[in-house]
Write a protein that binds this DNA or RNA. Structure first.
Length: 565
RNA sequence: UGGGGCGUGGCCAAGUGGUAAGGCGCGGGGCUUUGGACCCCGGAUCGAAGGUUCGAAUCCUUCCGCCCCAGCCA
């Protein structure tokens, strides 16, 4: 119920514009597009754009195209195309038949380039990249016209044709629009339309050796596909005059409108391709799908449900203000979904042995446990109980501080779905470390209720020693120690050395050993955990997706109390 | 001394002249066989200063702050 339903998404300024366009009859079908460049992995920031574009399309009964902006063969690869498709699908979106590539339009784009040349609105420039930069001027000074700016149409046509034929080496010449070298908007100072790149393209192979730039491609691609609203991030706001210039000066079949919104920033997280790549290359994480990564593949492996990502993208809204969303909001969405859907089980991460002195040596009892208190339909399961059990080390304290109400010497607690037990004796090793608890159980409390109405302050999870399955559990914390990594310089210096803790020798109730890789379950009282693909039949591996809200941890943090155990 | 944007509670974010929604977080309390979930309660005068108006976060003026742009990247 805290989850916004898909149909009721908030009307942000973009949806308002679109709604108005529909109302006025400007468009009868709303068409959007998600236009990734296939040069990297998708991350949570892309999810915001995906959620917006596909969400808008669905809300207005329109459609959303998936279009790869593959205009730079030196950076793009087929591998990325596949991972992007998989990630968008996993997020729960469907582009139907509308799967395109900017490279599908290369021929048409070229014709349009010729058109501009014929109109005297584009020219071939022989200046080098450095010279072009020098001529461009600065932010406060106007640029200077290239000496090649006034070539004849015939010469430009000839040169452009020869560029295409491959007569010139990379960088020898470019095709530029003839707009205004004195414009305050640098994008309008005769932007480059085509560059020579003798590179093989993932899709068009060696058919081309000149490739259109983003600016000369995006708007026209939108127009070709009949995109009505082209939604992009703020840094393209400066490009809009150029986007419109092409639409104004070319015989395009439709008139899309570009609207910009603020990209996502997340606290304790880094989202630029460059930084993400650096994390992988320098080995700060185990790969693109490391569960600590904000990539869609990392998030998936971590155990975040796609629904949580969708909820999150709706919850954060769309606006033009630069902002940093608290990662706690994402975690909230994850817990919200998992609380509803994840089945529960008992797992003890750091086992402490408990021997029930008054429980028969070889007896095993079967008790009934609820699989998901939020979902009666999930049913129940049987858990086995015996004389030797294990509880969480941190659930016992020999000298309990004021607000600690779990197990302690002489204290009685409830073992969930089982019995009340009382700690009678603490066994330590030579080092003085607690290695075992001798306890007694109350046979009258079977199932967890006392006939006399006694109610222990605490209920603990546990596993039966004879039946438990061991596992490795990977505990994650934020990858960075501060909300704004890199604000003081090198973001790598803000890496959290404790972002990954591998705990071996964890004990699972048998049912948890069956959880298939990719499924997320709740380890009661601890958090949500996702079975990792690294799991093998004799080595179960789980990733902690997110902890449960932990009031006790907060109290400890506040009182500065150390976490014994 | 260029151009384009943005400034509402700790973080997101509604509000479009009529007297500040909601969410996250945080702090209280209730309930509880997860110190989970769930349920209550608690906080802003809207970057600043002027002005217009019966009335302004919403209109005007000035100022301050922050972000983006000088790739043949997207």
């Amino acid at each position: 119920m805290t989850t916004p339903t898909d149909e009721r998404a908030r009307a942000d300024f973009i949806r308002e514009i679109i709604a108005a366009d529909v109302r006025s009859g400007k468009h009868d079908t709303v068409v959007t597009r998600f236009p990734p460049e296939p040069n990297g992995y998708l991350h949570i920031g892309h999810a915001k754009s995906i959620g917006l574009n596909f969400g808008v399309a669905r809300e207005f009964s329109g459609r959303c195209h998936l279009r790869f902006d593959d205009t730079n063969p030196t950076k793009e690869e087929m591998e990325y195309i596949e991972s992007i498709e998989r990630d968008v699908r996993w997020l729960g979106y469907d582009w139907g038949e509308h799967h395109y590539h900017a490279s599908d339009y290369f021929e048409r784009l070229y014709e349009w380039a010729v058109h501009l040349v014929r109109e005297g609105k584009a020219y071939v420039d022989d200046l080098s990249a450095d010279e072009i930069r020098e001529h461009r001027g600065t932010l406060t000074e106007p640029g200077k016209d290239s000496p090649w700016r006034s070539r004849s149409v015939e010469e430009n046509l000839d040169l452009l044709g020869r560029m295409r034929q491959g007569e010139f080496p990379d960088g020898a010449r470019v095709l530029r629009a003839k707009i205004d070298m004195a414009s305050g908007n640098i994008n309008m100072r005769d932007p480059v339309l085509y560059r020579i790149l003798h590179a093989s393209h993932p899709r068009t192979g060696d058919a081309w050796c000149i490739y259109p730039t983003y600016d000369f491609t995006h708007g026209q691609s939108d127009a070709i596909e009949g995109i009505t609203h082209s939604l992009c991030t703020l840094e393209f706001e400066d490009h809009r005059p150029l986007y419109d210039w092409f639409l104004d000066n070319l015989p395009v079949p439709s008139r899309p409108r570009q609207i910009e919104f603020a990209r996502l920033n997340l606290s304790y997280t880094v989202l630029s391709k460059r930084r993400l790549l650096q994390l992988v290359r320098e080995g700060h994480v185990r790969g693109w799908d490391d569960p600590r990564m904000p990539t869609i593949s990392g998030i998936r492996r971590r155990g975040f449900p796609p629904k949580a990502i969708r909820d999150f993208t709706e919850m954060i809204g769309i606006a033009k203000r630069d902002s940093v969303v608290d990662v706690a909001m994402l975690e909230h969405c994850v817990r919200d979904v998992l609380n509803q859907e994840a089945r529960r089980g008992f797992a003890v991460l750091r086992p402490l042995k408990v021997v029930l002195e008054n429980f028969p040596e070889d007896q095993v009892e079967e008790l009934e446990a609820v699989n998901n208190p939020e979902d009666p339909g999930a049913g129940t399961r049987t858990v086995r109980f015996s004389r030797e059990l294990y509880i969480e080390r941190e659930d016992f304290m020999e000298e309990p501080p004021r607000k600690f109400y779990r197990l302690a010497p002489g204290r009685e607690v409830r073992l969930r779905y089982a019995y009340f037990i009382t700690c009678q004796e603490v066994v330590k090793d030579e080092a003085g470390e607690v290695v075992e608890l001798r306890c007694t159980y109350d046979p009258a409390t079977r199932g967890g209720d006392a006939p006399d109405g006694r109610r222990p302050k605490a209920t603990l999870h546990w596993v039966s020693g004879a039946h438990a399955v061991s596992a490795e559990v990977r505990l994650y914390e934020h990858l960075f120690t501060r909300p704004d990594p890199g604000a003081d310089g090198d973001f790598a210096a803000d890496l959290n050395p404790k972002s990954l803790e591998v705990v071996e020798g964890c004990l699972l109730e048998p049912a948890l050993a069956e959880v298939p890789a990719g499924e997320t379950v709740q380890f009661e009282r601890l958090g949500y955990f996702c079975a990792d693909p690294d799991s093998t039949p004799d080595r179960r591996v789980f990733n902690r997706t997110v902890t449960l809200r932990d009031t006790w941890a907060k109290i400890q943090a506040r009182t500065g109390g150390p976490t014994k155990a």
